[in-house]
């Protein structure tokens, strides 16, 4: 093996070695059976998770794990697992989740090739997928994967600095509601904060005005 080839091989091995620990794995376990979610949806706060209670729930989970580890240590038995998040890590997680789950209106357009979930005050979640597998879209700031997992439409965003966001959309028990489950995870917290939000159908025409966001004028609302 000549010297440059050896250098190339070693460099490749170094990069591979760093990749053995995958940051994120996602399993799709069901056959894609897309369902119609199109229409206008508004959040139903009465049925949706309260962020504070979700944060409390994660805190209790962390405390229980801390207690378990402490018991194991007292008994002289070791344990495996990553360090537990501190209280401030969880607060950071909750503050991010608050921003990410802020949209209260969804406008879903759907055809055989594409689903577009427009969200007020945020970017749209767009998935071009024929139902045959996952679609990954890469750009400089992150990677989005999307697809149908059974009747659930999911989007997974892996952004810079270890910020991972997953959205799962499914129809609620009754046909007129939609469930959006958002999971937010950071490299520091290592525990996902999961927020469930229910949406119900609404008629935008009945509002008496229509709003449109444009690049040049921002959000413009006109009466009908």
């Amino acid at each position: 093996m000549t010297r440059p080839i050896l250098q190339g091989f070693l460099a490749a091995m170094v990069v591979l070695a760093g990749c053995v620990q995958d940051r994120h794995k996602e399993a799709v376990t069901r056959i894609a059976t897309p369902i119609d979610m199109s229409g206008h949806w508004e959040i139903d706060y009465s049925r949706s998770d309260n962020l504070q209670s979700q944060l409390n729930s994660v805190s209790r989970q962390v405390q229980r794990e801390a207690a378990r580890r402490s018991r194991l240590a007292e008994e002289g038995r070791g344990f495996t697992g990553s360090p537990l998040p501190g209280g401030r890590d969880l607060v950071t997680l909750a503050r991010l989740a608050e921003i990410i789950t802020e949209p209260a209106l969804l406008d879903i357009m759907q055809d055989d090739a594409r689903v577009r979930v427009k969200r007020d005050n945020s970017f749209a979640l767009i998935c071009e997928n024929d139902g045959s597998g996952l679609t990954a879209t890469n750009d400089a700031l992150g990677v989005q994967r999307c697809g149908w997992d059974g009747e659930q439409l999911f989007f997974s965003l892996a952004l810079q600095d270890g910020l991972d966001i997953t959205h799962r959309l499914s129809r609620g028990g009754d046909s007129d509601s939609l469930l959006l489950v958002t999971s937010v995870e950071t490299a520091a917290a290592r525990v996902p904060l999961v927020v469930s939000q229910y949406f119900t159908r609404y008629d935008p025409e009945a509002l008496g005005y229509r709003c449109q966001r444009t690049l040049t004028k921002g959000k413009v609302c006109t009466t009908q």
């Binding site: 190339g8 990749c19 399993a27 990677v143 994967r145 892996a158």
Partner: peptide, 23 residues
């Protein structure tokens, strides 16, 4: 069951880029 690991894909590309950079 399909298990996708985007990070592995990224890293494979990283290996390729490293080799190409050396040549």
């Amino acid at each position: 069951s399909v298990v996708i690991s985007w990070f592995t894909t990224y890293c494979s590309l990283g290996v390729l880029a490293t080799v190409v950079a050396l040549y």
